[in-house]
Design a protein around this nucleic acid. Structure first.
Length: 764
DNA sequence: CTGCGTGGCATTTTT
DNA sequence: TGCCACGCAG
């Protein structure tokens, strides 16, 4: 290796290696064979991974095309690709095309493999990818078909088990149940039918993408061999989060040369509930006895207080390797632990701490609020809105999960793949065109008799050359119209860009016009979402295309791309806004100031009341807190509330056991007091401006919120009335939805649905 | 077939 | 508390 280095520019080589510390550099420079890099939080893991890839290329140990690097998120893959390119281009003068480097997520890598080799398993090149909700609706359809009651067996639990089994590397044919009894029996029948239905629809769920690839490699060793021969080096990021199926995939791809490099941190394994198997990283040396292990223990991100406190917390776990994080950073401020009276008070305190930070010169986009469950964001959002603070929520409601977006995509998916029965069922009667349940049941019945997909059944019975006769009853006419509609769209597909095809769909199906006819705020926002969807397609078309045949603009490639993007990819981290997210979403990110709320028993650690908590569940929750704490660069704020309303009823709360694991010397503690309790009620939305009638605070009783007073008066509000809202200011009533709810458009604040019971509006 | 009302029921979600 | 799924009436 060293003799080869002389062929290149040693100056730059030394330069980039000198940016690394001892263990980092050792891991980068280590030659062939299996490597495990245990990378503590903030220890420069991505730098090591990207430097190693660049180093392998620079020193001619590997050709760029021989490298395969996998991660879990698009974001991580994009960042890694970008950084490798920068290193190669700017520091080493090696110029590559993007496609010369195979850095991708597990799922998109498998899609790519299956697109080119799926025919070995009997899949067409352009199978459809079913997301979680498509999957759930297929599970339900199978249950209905097999008369498995949805009330005794929850479809979600069946879906969950199917995914679990697939994550472990089994399918319906080789899964051996260790249970017995009627439930198991029903489950196995559904699983088996579900598998058939997927194949019939030429579709795969997320689990299949990995599983079928493993199957391909198992059943077709020559295909596997070709990949092994091509890939000299396999690198895996976040190895602690791999499930068994992904583990098998990686193991197969690593050829006998055994050049595998995995990076991970068992303390940051937080996806066990999704099949992640922490033992993959804990037992790496057993799989690869020749493994060389490197430990990255120096943290460059956080203050010493934060690192030491987080380390003391995670030290209580037993499922971990011996590893100690340290930092040479300054001690920093203490961690602020605040007790709140309830969740409203908590939100108030969080925002007050945030505003103090902003006053002290921190920028809003470097501040984050983390919570355990999405539901916790609402209270915080309310306060943020009343204060006019810009914020972005990561996760929660997903754009591609919205009804109208899913409907439109279902049309596109059905056009691309007419066998896709899930999409067919979704849109056959959307907008309503007189094809109801009875008709659909009959269609499904017949389709099963003939062993064809629903669309194919229509084609064979109603198409230009009918080959079978099906009694379609009264709905024959509607079905024929639907068939002609879809046939027309399919015929138009080859000559249209995906964005124009979407437009055609929305026009021809009357989807757009039926929304326009509704003339409600909801419909309006749906139309806006459809416009955004179209804009997204246009952007896809703009960045694709060109000479690269891999980037040809087709409906299929567009659908493939969006099937694998998460909502996370849509947000702009540089926007001047506060970031709100669950801790799961926060993994891999960092902020100057981090606020973690809801540190209470049952919520965090989160305990399903109907299921006894196992010690390993608690350890995973502890890892989650560890991940959250180690996201903070400068300051960390922790909160818990003494009362919290859960599902409508208020409960007394006990502070999280994890808080006791943080030694007092790292903490500054603030107790809740009577005045903070009062203050937050006075700051609640819905109160008139304090100075309005000179009766400051007087209407607020001791613990009486004071704002739940019912409709403020007998004002007869109707569409067109002008109102004044204590926070949003002047607005015009757009709609009256029953007794209590009205829709108001505020000047410069957009349209809001408002409950009159909780809000004092003044007619002006 | 469609629209509306009531009751049951709630984690985390890289792809 | 708020959403979604089912049941019934038109």
């Amino acid at each position: 290796m060293t003799q080869r280095q002389t062929l290149f520019d040693i100056g730059s080589l030394v330069d980039y290696l000198q940016k690394l510390n001892g263990p980092q550099r050792a891991a980068v420079e280590w030659g062939a064979g299996p490597i495990l890099i245990l990378a503590g939080a903030g220890s420069g893991k991505t730098r090591v991974l990207t430097s190693r890839i660049a180093h392998l290329i620079q020193t001619r140990q590997a050709d760029p095309t021989q490298i395969f690097a996998v991660t879990f998120t698009n974001k991580a893959a994009a960042e890694m690709r970008h950084r490798v390119h920068t290193l190669l281009n700017e520091e080493m003068g090696i110029h590559l095309e993007e496609r010369d480097l195979w850095v991708s997520t597990f799922h998109s890598a498998c899609v790519r493999i299956l697109r080119s080799h799926g025919h070995f398993l009997g899949f067409p090149n352009h199978f459809t990818i079913y997301d979680d909700s498509d999957q759930l609706s297929l599970v339900k359809a199978c249950m209905r078909e097999l008369n498995v009651s949805e009330t005794t067996f929850s479809p979600k639990s069946i879906q969950g088990r199917i995914n679990k089994i697939k994550n472990e590397g089994y399918d319906a044919s080789n899964y051996k149940s260790t249970y017995g009894g009627p439930f198991e029996d029903a489950f196995l029948r559904v699983f088996s039918r579900y598998t058939e239905a997927l194949k019939q629809s030429a579709a795969m769920d997320f689990g299949d993408l990995i599983l079928q690839t493993v199957k391909l490699f198992t059943e077709h060793p020559n295909v596997l061999k070709a990949f092994q021969d091509r890939l000299g080096h396999v690198l895996v990021d976040e190895y602690q989060d791999t499930n068994r199926c992904q583990y098998l995939l990686v193991k197969k791809l690593v050829s006998s040369a055994g050049n595998i490099c995995v990076v991970g941190d068992e303390d940051q394994s937080i996806y066990r509930w999704r099949g992640a198997d922490i033992s993959n990283i804990l037992n790496f040396e057993k799989d690869y006895p020749a493994a060389k292990i490197f430990k990255l223990e120096e943290n460059y991100r956080s203050t010493r207080n934060i690192i030491e406190a987080a380390s003391r917390v995670i030290a209580n776990n037993t499922e971990r390797r011996d590893k100690t994080l340290f930092t040479n950073n300054t001690e920093g401020d203490k961690i602020l632990l605040s007790e709140a009276y309830d969740e409203h008070d908590e939100a108030f305190k969080v925002i007050s701490d945030i505003l103090n930070g902003v006053t002290a010169g921190e920028s809003l986009n470097q501040i984050a609020v983390f919570y355990r469950t999405n539901a916790q964001s609402r209270v915080i959002e309310d306060v943020l809105r009343t204060k006019g603070i810009q914020y972005q929520i990561y996760g929660g409601l997903k754009f591609y999960d919205r009804l109208e977006v899913k409907d439109s995509l279902a049309y596109l998916k059905l056009i691309a793949n007419p066998s896709d029965d899930v999409s067919f069922r979704r849109i056959v009667n959307v907008p309503p065109r007189g094809i109801g349940n009875v008709t659909l049941e009959r269609l499904m019945d017949q389709a099963r008799v003939y062993g064809v997909s629903l669309f194919s059944l229509l084609e064979k019975s109603l198409g230009p050359e009918p080959t079978i006769t099906v009694d379609l009853g009264r709905s024959r006419k509607s079905l024929l119209e639907f068939y002609n509609l879809m046939a027309g769209l399919r015929a138009a597909k080859p000559s249209l860009l995906p964005s124009d095809l979407l437009n055609m769909v929305l026009e021809e199906t009357n989807y757009r016009s039926s929304l326009q006819k509704e003339d409600s705020v909801e419909a309006q926002s749906r139309l806006e979402n459809l416009a955004e969807l179209r804009q997204g397609i246009v952007e896809y078309e703009l960045r694709s295309g060109g000479d690269d045949p891999n980037k040809k603009i087709t409906l299929e490639t567009y659908l493939e791309e969006i099937a694998l993007v998460s909502d996370l990819d849509r947000y702009d981290p540089t926007a001047p806004a506060l970031k709100l997210m669950t801790i799961h979403m926060a993994k891999g990110l960092e902020f100057d100031r981090v606020h973690i709320v809801g540190l209470e028993e049952e919520l965090f650690p989160n305990i399903r009341s109907w299921d006894a908590a196992e010690p390993s569940d608690i350890e995973e929750e502890r890892r989650l807190l560890y991940v959250g704490m180690t996201r903070a660069r400068k300051r960390l704020f922790l909160y818990f509330a003494k009362n919290r309303t859960v599902f409508g009823t208020s409960h007394f709360r006990v502070e999280s056991r994890f808080l006791e694991e943080i030694p007092k010397e790292y903490l500054e503690t603030k107790k809740a007091d009577y005045f903070t309790r009062r203050r937050h009620y006075l700051d609640r939305p819905g109160l008139p401006p304090r100075s309005a009638h000179g009766e400051e605070y007087s209407q607020v009783g001791d613990f009486d919120p004071g704002f739940e007073q019912g409709p403020s008066d007998d004002e007869d509000l109707r569409a067109g009335s002008k109102v004044e809202h204590p926070i949003f200011g002047l607005g015009i009533v757009r709609q009256v939805l029953g007794d209590d709810k009205i829709v108001v458009e505020f000047r410069g604040r957009g349209t809001k649905k408002i409950s009159r019971k909780f809000t004092q509006l003044r007619e002006v």
